[in-house]
Nucleic acid binder design. Sequence first.
DNA 1: GATATAGTAAAACGATCGTTTTACTATGTG
DNA 2: CACATAGTAAAACGATCGTTTTACTATATC
Lengths: 173, 173
Amino acid sequence: MDIEQRIISAAEFSFDHNGFTASGMDKLTAAANVSSRTLYKRLGNKNNLMAAVLAHRRQRFFSALDGASIDEIFAQLASWSESEGARGCLFLRALSDAGTSIDEVAAEVTVYRKELHLLITRLVRSETGDGNAVEAMLVLFEGAVAAASYRGVGAIHVARTAAAVLLNESSER
Amino acid sequence: MDIEQRIISAAEFSFDHNGFTASGMDKLTAAANVSSRTLYKRLGNKNNLMAAVLAHRRQRFFSALDGASIDEIFAQLASWSESEGARGCLFLRALSDAGTSIDEVAAEVTVYRKELHLLITRLVRSETGDGNAVEAMLVLFEGAVAAASYRGVGAIHVARTAAAVLLNESSER
DNA sequence: GATATAGTAAAACGATCGTTTTACTATGTG
DNA sequence: CACATAGTAAAACGATCGTTTTACTATATC
């Protein structure tokens, strides 16, 4: 396997399961089976590594969310959480953990949010003709991810059902 | 003012605005205008201080959310966010930032979540007769808080409207 | 008036952490 | 063969941070 991808994948797992600050460079090098010298030569520093992990995470996440409707998106979000575990949004957690002041991280979070917003906007528009329900779908999506971390994946199915009701209501008027 | 309350209030502000890890003990003592010796004599250590802040926050928060209906609760959440600012749920952020492994913090988060769940359950039951919509209201609440941190307080009003629609739908069946 | 109490100011400690450096090894290429 | 490249292992550095300690001051109480 490519050594850079191995570092990033191992770091993604460690960040997700143990947190960003709690994942020290020694743990990250051990998890990826590389020396610290190699990690720094390849990734520069920890901030850059975090940004690279978030970029990689974003690609993986939106690749899994390729549905053609809001309903499918929620179903795929449920599948993702079943297989990956529901520990809350990694991007939100990156902001809380690493801090808003780290520009590389903040930039990646912004990109993620824009892409999520774009995805939902596109789907809502294609289903209802207008974009009135976009913000509500975004709230349901964020809420599903947050609630699933302590209420279980069932919260995502609840959000899915609620989304269907709201979209139906929205298109009836 | 009581010195302990002064420490806790100043710490709550610093934790909320700068993060838990980023708020070093020197910043916390400076913000409260106390010596570190006094802070440690009163609060024990940083973990205990974080727990005390979260307990204080929980009391403040649920005092502000004393409405008699789901609709009022969302309106009061909007008011809270207008005056306090919307930087995401402080309890969620405490878990991400300080880490799940700090028992004092994890315990406070659990208490908060139980109280929120209890509040919503009570209100939904009194409005619809059953508790079918509880989980959906919880998802909307969590989503409103999360989305408001980058979409603005308007997200909370969207959640409020969505809650009304869903509750109406739920009681019609 | 002696004394316990509760506070300040500031130095010091010990540990952790991100990062760099040194010394060394393996590999493939001109 | 010589040599640049890319890696490991491990020590060292410098800074930060939570916590403790020392020395000192003000206050109220018996």
